[in-house]
């Protein structure tokens, strides 16, 4: 740190204006790099194990297309509304920002609700984490993503409270920007889950 920490640049978007903001955003990008490595490992594990179903059901027998489609729709839309929120922030509109964040959050809650429903359904079918290596890796991969989304929802709530308390400052703007990066990242991961878990599971 140093005087550099408070070097202020008026020409940049609000979240990039302080040195602290720039450092935190870069740090978060690198963290997302680590998250990619984390999910890549989970995907690799799943791809190694997904045909090893033991005495349990196969992917084709199990997956619920309808629920998964609804989840996909909800999460992809939430990524779009999250983008709108940052767009409103860049124009300096607090109300628009909060509104779109709220919509994003509700879509996220919808996603989680459907995912939990899906999981409960599988468990009722007798397909639990303990049944086979396929199901262990399925629940851990998709569950890790779901846990990330849930954490993101909680995090977003905290940031919305801070926006209400403090308004748009370089600090709150940075937090909104970072949570939006996180949210889009989860969307990207979901696209891979949708393709490599559900679509692949339908055909193989």
């Amino acid at each position: 740190m140093g005087e550099a920490a408070h070097r202020y640049d008026e020409t940049m978007p609000l979240e990039y204006r302080t040195e602290e903001g720039r450092l935190n955003i870069l740090g978060f990008w690198i963290f997302l790099g680590a998250e990619i490595a984390l999910f890549a490992t989970l995907f690799a594990t799943y791809l190694v194990l997904f045909q090893r179903t033991g005495s349990g059901p196969t992917a084709q027998e199990l997956f619920q297309v309808k629920d998964v489609l609804v989840e996909t729709l909800l999460l992809l839309t939430s990524s779009f509304t999250c983008g709108l929120a940052v767009f409103e922030m860049r124009r300096g509109r607090l109300a628009g920002l909060l509104t779109w964040l709220l919509v994003t959050l509700l879509l996220g809650v919808g996603f989680i609700t459907f995912e939990i429903r899906e999981f409960i359904h599988y468990v009722h079918e007798g397909a639990t984490m303990q049944t086979s290596a396929f199901l262990s890796s399925f629940f851990v991969l998709v569950g890790t993503h779901g846990a990330h989304v849930s954490l993101g929802i909680g995090w977003m709530v905290l940031i919305m409270i801070q926006l209400l308390q403090r308004g748009l400052t370089p600090k709150t703007a940075r937090k909104v920007f970072i949570v939006s990066l996180y949210w889009h990242f989860l969307d990207v991961v979901w696209i891979f889950i949708f393709t490599l878990v559900y679509l692949l599971g339908m055909v193989v």
Partner: peptide, 8 residues
């Protein structure tokens, strides 16, 4: 059942 001897 990730690293077990049974169930895949």
């Amino acid at each position: 059942q990730f690293f077990t001897m049974a169930n895949g």
